[in-house]
Design a binder for these strands. Structure first.
Lengths: 344, 344
DNA sequence: CTCACAATTGCAAGCGCTTCCAAGCTGCTG
DNA sequence: CAGCAGCTTGGAAGCGCTTGCAATTGTGAG
């Protein structure tokens, strides 16, 4: 493997000049620059990032911490982050902290402190103030996506407002018997989003003077299969059946639709369903949803970060609300003319 | 940020001794070791991995190249890889090469050569011999998962045998009108798996003396939505309808089931469906499938890699066949007693 | 034609750690 | 009690690059 020294020799220049020529920093004559580049190309020189990082302090590497890479939202964000980073010449170090508090702990307290990353993107992860301080202490900017991160920059959607809009959509169609499928309490801990969305939903109901029935507040684990099981209980149980379900995620909405079909319920004639996400699968089910462009959020986070890194300016923490849009498809409609309480 | 020098001072030891004490290499008295560790803990010392890597040549970092992190198989593998790596104290640099040949090219020709990774795991990626040589030239072990990688170690399932088994399962149930949903040609390029599975399927058919009808060989993009569209054409078209469909992936099998339901076909009474993967969603649909433990494959790849790295022994390239298992659920059954060609 | 000043260039000092090597010790053996 | 092996230790040389600083070269003005 050729080093910068070899390039310098071949180009008949000093190491310093070659370094400047290849990195583009500092003043180098056109001729020298060309020579250096040619020599580097001839030798197939690829700079050692370790040495470079050690000497310069810049890593060209950002760490991404996600709760799981197997779930729609997270993997979408990672795709956006990854593409943007790659195009900028940055490496992406993935910290998938699924499976255990201890793993999360070691990532936060060991891995991230090894000075390997220039910045950290935390997706739907609620960090304690201490954890954030620790990260900020090593002078690495942090940006959070989809979760509150006091003291750091964040990019997130208006979860409460969105949920309210989803509820309002159903209400405006004429529904009054609306169920809400939220996330398990476990999810509320880390990214609190279930609670926020449920809050927005209740807000919409209250505004319309509708009752929020406790038996229609069910929860699942944000997966299709989990929601399916939960929806079967809701729709097949002995309680009166709602005419509409607002699920806190598209995957849960889809699980609900599948369960409804099992009971012979037609969507949307017998049951309206609305979700949140903009999941690719939504189209197959004609799912009405609120599209949050997860990939776009990831890309934005990176752009924000890189801008700060290159400028060197320690941009202050700022909160950005990412826009969303209501996508109306065929899973929502006016409620059945007459609603009779059916027993499964 | 404290450096090893600070630790040395506080512990009243030399830098060299502290380094040995903390890394566990070399002989250090118990007393010194303890002192060093205490001092390090007191100061909150975290070694700089750049410096460490530069000096030692070991990175504690492996690169993972995947076609996309958004698809079931890949994200499953990444989860397995990630957990195993994290537990071993390694970083995982993710190279998500979705979206463009050029991105793939830059990853292979720039990123991976920067000596930042100790090893490379390539998932379902067919590398040219030149690309492999290039990687091997920088003395980095490579292991491939789910794709052929001439010259490198690989972990893969017996795609042909599996497909044959899936076909046989249907045949043994009494089916003779079996369709096969394979991957788009585009996928065949990079990981050739569609062709291999199709080959296995044809093998099973041939063995049973059954005809492989071209109009029943359809393809999709490995997604539920893609398969759904494709299956609608297959099942709703004017050609005679098969009594069973073998899809090359669970997601495609699910898309097929959804399409079948649209046409009022009952699974498995009217149509049997079998997939390959072991997708979490399979349970909801009662999908019979061949379970390949993707997460386990990822974990195994890492263990294999680390064993080689730690030993220092340049383990020869070896091919490992990962075991799979047929999971029979409710989506496959004997064909309808009398099969009449229905027109949609 | 000479001089001040700017653009280039090279020297060399690190970046923070690992590790070779030799020196210092300890505890035995003869 | 000398002599030696074996364990610990510290010194110091890098790992391969970046960058401050000073030296060199080139340029236009006077």
């Amino acid at each position: 493997m050729p080093g910068i020294k070899d390039v310098a020799e071949r180009a008949g220049l000093s190491i310093a000049t070659v370094s400047r020529a290849l990195s583009g920093k500092g003043n180098v004559s056109v001729r020298s620059k060309q020579r250096a580049q040619t020599a580097a190309a001839d030798l197939g020189f690829v700079p050692s990032y370790h040495a470079s990082s050690l000497a310069s302090g810049r890593n060209h590497n950002v760490g991404v911490v996600v709760p799981s890479v197997h779930r729609w939202f997270f993997s979408s964000v990672v795709e956006g982050v990854s593409a943007t980073l790659l195009d900028a010449g940055y490496d992406l170090t993935l910290y998938n902290v699924s499976g255990g508090e201890e793993r999360r702990h070691s990532v936060l307290n060991d891995f991230l402190l090894r000075k390997r990353v220039d910045a950290v993107i935390a997706v739907s992860l609620e960090l304690s103030t201490a954890e954030i301080q620790q990260l900020l202490a090593i002078h690495r900017p942090i940006v959070g996506i989809g979760g509150p991160l006091p003291g750091a920059s964040t990019i997130r959607i208006d979860d409460s407002g969105i949920a309210e809009a989803a509820g309002r959509h159903l209400i405006q169609l004429g529904h009054s018997k609306i169920a809400h499928m939220t996330g398990d309490a476990a999810y509320d801990k880390d990214f609190r989003l279930p609670g926020t969305r449920q809050g927005g939903f209740k807000e919409a109901m209250r505004d319309a003077g509708l009752a929020v029935r406790p038996e229609w507040q069910v929860c699942a684990d944000f997966t299709i299969q989990g929601a399916y099981a939960s929806a079967r209980r809701l729709l097949g149980g002995s309680v009166e059946r709602p005419t509409a379900v607002f699920a806190a995620s598209d995957e849960m909405a889809i699980g609900t639709i599948l369960a409804a079909r099992d009971f012979g319920l037609r969507i949307p004639q017998d049951l309206s369903v609305i979700g949140i996400d903009g999941h690719e699968l939504g189209e197959v089910f004609g799912l009405t949803t609120i599209d949050q462009d997860a990939r776009g959020q990831g890309a934005l986070a990176v752009r924000r970060l890189l801008a700060g890194l290159e400028d060197g300016a320690n941009t202050a923490a700022e909160d950005t609300e990412y826009p969303t849009s209501l996508v109306i498809r065929s899973s929502t409609a006016v409620p059945p003319a007459e609603t009779v309480a059916l027993q499964a």
